[in-house]
Amino acid sequence: MNRTPSLVVALLVAPLALVLLWAFHEALTQPSGARLADLAETSLSRTGVGNPVTAVLLSYRGYDTMLELGVLLAALLGIWSLGRVSPGFHPPELALTAMVAWVVPLLILTAGYLLWAGAERPGGAFQGGALLGAAGVILRLTGERRLGLPSERAQRRLAIAGIGAFLAVGLGTAAAGLGFLAYPESWSKWLILLIETATTLAVGMTLAAAYPGGPPGPAGNERDAP
């Protein structure tokens, strides 16, 4: 690293930070009574879920979440398009392999719990999906080439499951004249659960599949040679 540019950059970034701090202070002290918090809380009963964060993600701003899953899909498709890469790590020790045998089921179980709990308490599709992804990564680290993932065909279906659920529900409600992603109140809870379940699977699968950094492997359940 060259010392002079790094100092120059520091001298440029420091005043920027000060200005931003000042602006942030001003923003906090502006007399703006309008916060979405109260509105989000009073509308909560109409969403069918008790956790306001889940309500924002799946109901109030569900459209954002759908497009965000699109970002995840674009990254996965981009990684798959780059072709195969060499494995970047060593075969595992025995102790690790033994530990994985009970860590992975535990992760899957916890993911399911987080998905279910997300309706009322902290938790939800992304937290659950992250744990599923972690289970896949741990399997890969023990030399399981396929990370416990199914065939490429099934992986492609799982990768789109979350957006697919959003679109199916959204186009359905639009066709029914309610508007895109406007869930009818009596169905809301179950539609949200459906979308969340599909999203959990899609996020978990995508994170695990993105980890080795290449397209899905050939069929067979082979492991790395020790």
Binding site: A37, A40, V56, D64, T65
Partner: peptide
């Protein structure tokens, strides 16, 4: 507490 920023963070 406002849930909207929390959701934005997750996104």
């Amino acid at each position: 507490p406002d849930p909207v920023p929390h959701a934005l963070v997750l996104t």
